[in-house]
Design a protein around this nucleic acid. Structure first.
Lengths: 227, 227
DNA sequence: CGCGTTATCTACCATGCGGTAGATTCTACG
DNA sequence: CGTAGAATCTACCGCATGGTAGATAACGCG
């Protein structure tokens, strides 16, 4: 259900047994949190999916909260790595150094497209970000920071897209547009997860960007999934 | 914390004791679900806020699920009534029969504005709609229907707004635009609930509508709250 | 006022929870 | 191959949960 046990790539880090188990736990946790949210998933649930006892799980994580934030931060790292690799790949292909500002928007759309095809992560973020709204939630601060970071990054991308559009876009505020495109992506995912036929997330996002004066038609949408 | 006990309006239905208790329970439930979501609120929590025992609560509702959907459907009824009253009031004022299509969009914006001022309902819908994403959730079907209804209603409003705009808007699909404006409202609320200073929901919504070619400047935004 | 109905309480149940303690099995390295 | 240390298990704790049973208290109508 998660990953095969012996899929070790040629030799470099032989990955001790404990590390493998830890990974298995984190994979299971990510799946289950996506399926049913944080609060209603028990440590025993996660442990069972990882073929372990819940006491065994607690050998690796100090508690349920620890498991959650560890998993989320790990997701972030993978996301950032994937984005950087994508940028490097593009730069190599075009013999030109692309930046985050250049590819941020197309990356966002690519992520949504990936979610729409292999629907694992969308429910995770939909459920968790809503739960984490409560200040006492263990992931509250994580999500505040995540959204702040996302807005910052996309503000840069938006400004860049405005500047390089043909004709250049002058009437819109990149800060507001960044928050708006994030909101749109989130809201679309809610409707889509509730009823996948009700809405075409990618088309809607691209339409929105075109409305802003940005032309996404030439984008090579990042096709690979996120991690 | 909820309503005062003797706020009975002049006489018509003297409201039996049981009915009053039932109302008190529903009010408490709505508050708590908004504060902490459905799953993590216990019947004892709700009962305590309603100054009753959890067993006493179960005299009125057959179970936790029953309580949830009863409360949500009740909210819907109040929402619809408030909308109709708003329409009638406008029609009386202008001596002209307004319809839902005429006021739908301004109503939506008014609701968001109300949420932004008195932040009770926004967290409720943010948390519940995310939880209800899971098909086994007791409110899953409720939310599917709610969103479908919302899209239908706003599609009409959108078409009307496009037609009556100056100049009339031709390039946009009312169906897609309806889903988009709902998504935008939802997504903005997530960011706003997480960090109220991060985003101006009303300004963002109005900006979006203007971008569509709709001019909301003349709207008399519905100022009163919803329930 | 009397009394049936309704509302509410106390007490209980089985279940599942997060977390801990300590015994036991397995791993991997010298 | 032996053994220290890591990994994992069994067993338990206290607590909260949703729900039930039945006794008791309050209401409100005749």
């Amino acid at each position: 259900m998660t990953t095969t046990m012996d899929g070790d790539r040629s030799g470099v880090p032989p990955l001790t047994k404990g590390e493998r188990t830890r990974r298995r736990i984190m994979d299971s946790a990510l799946e289950l949190f996506g399926e049913r949210g944080y609060t209603s998933v028990s440590l025993r649930d996660v442990a069972a999916r990882a073929a372990i006892t819940h006491a065994g799980l607690l050998h690796y994580f100090s508690g349920k909260d620890d498991l959650l934030i560890t998993v989320m931060i790990d997701r972030d790292k993978q996301e950032i790595i994937a984005l950087q690799e994508h940028i490097e790949q593009l730069s190599r292909r075009d013999g030109r150094p692309w930046t985050v500002d250049d590819v941020g928007l197309s990356w966002l759309v690519g992520q949504i497209a990936a979610n729409q095809r292999r629907p694992d992560l969308a429910p995770l973020y939909v459920k968790l970000s809503a739960e984490a709204t409560e200040p006492s939630h263990p992931a509250h601060n994580y999500f505040r920071k995540r959204y702040a970071r996302l807005r910052r990054t996309l503000t840069g991308s938006m400004a860049r897209a405005f500047a390089t559009a043909d004709p250049p876009v002058t009437g819109h505020d990149p800060v507001a547009a960044a928050a708006q495109v994030i909101a749109l992506a989130d809201g679309l995912q809610i409707q889509w997860v509730l009823d996948p036929d009700s809405v075409d997330m990618v088309a809607s996002l691209l339409g929105y960007l075109r409305m802003l004066g940005i032309d996404p038609d030439g984008w090579a949408l990042a096709d690979e999934a996120a991690g």
